[in-house]
Amino acid sequence: MSETRKIAVTINGKRYEEEVEVRWTLADFMRQQLGLTGTHLGCEHGVCGACTILFDGYSARSCLMLAVQADGHEILTVEGIAPSEEQMHPLQEAFRDNHGLQCGFCTPGMLTTLLEFLRDNPDPTEQEVRIAISGNLCRCTGYQGIVAAALDAAQRLKAAKEAS
């Protein structure tokens, strides 16, 4: 039987204490052991970006991390982006309004990547957005709706900040 370790990790604000197999990837741990299936696996070799999560606030590919490495860390996945069950995050709303998704499989990685990006670059240009998501493959949209959504989200976030 494979070696296991006990870990404690906070995901979307909830603390989990779990016994994990040391060879399990973080993505598999979240998806299979915790049932957090919002994070998707598209390639498992670090190219497609669908499995992107925020690890201590920084984007990372969860197929390229071991679950055991998450011990003591904080993770945000797509399930934790919306402020409440009833309300979506401005970025999610912008995706909906700009047709930033079709099949929705790349979407979790796009959202987490852009969440970090817009935090660091609140007023980006189109080219900056394109570079920011260049590590995330999408086969449906030709990226145009996603780029539009990111630029729109930047405006929404700015407006929300000014209003508060």
Binding site: R31, G35, L36, T37, G38, T39, H40, L41, T77, V78, E79, I81, A82, M88, Q92, F95, R96, D97, H99, L101, C103, G104, F105, T107, P108, L111
Partner: peptide
Amino acid sequence: VGRIEDPALLTGKGRFIDDIK
């Protein structure tokens, strides 16, 4: 018209083949 597929897909509530349990 906004897509009826979107809310679930945007919040991680889609149910793809690997999500079937």
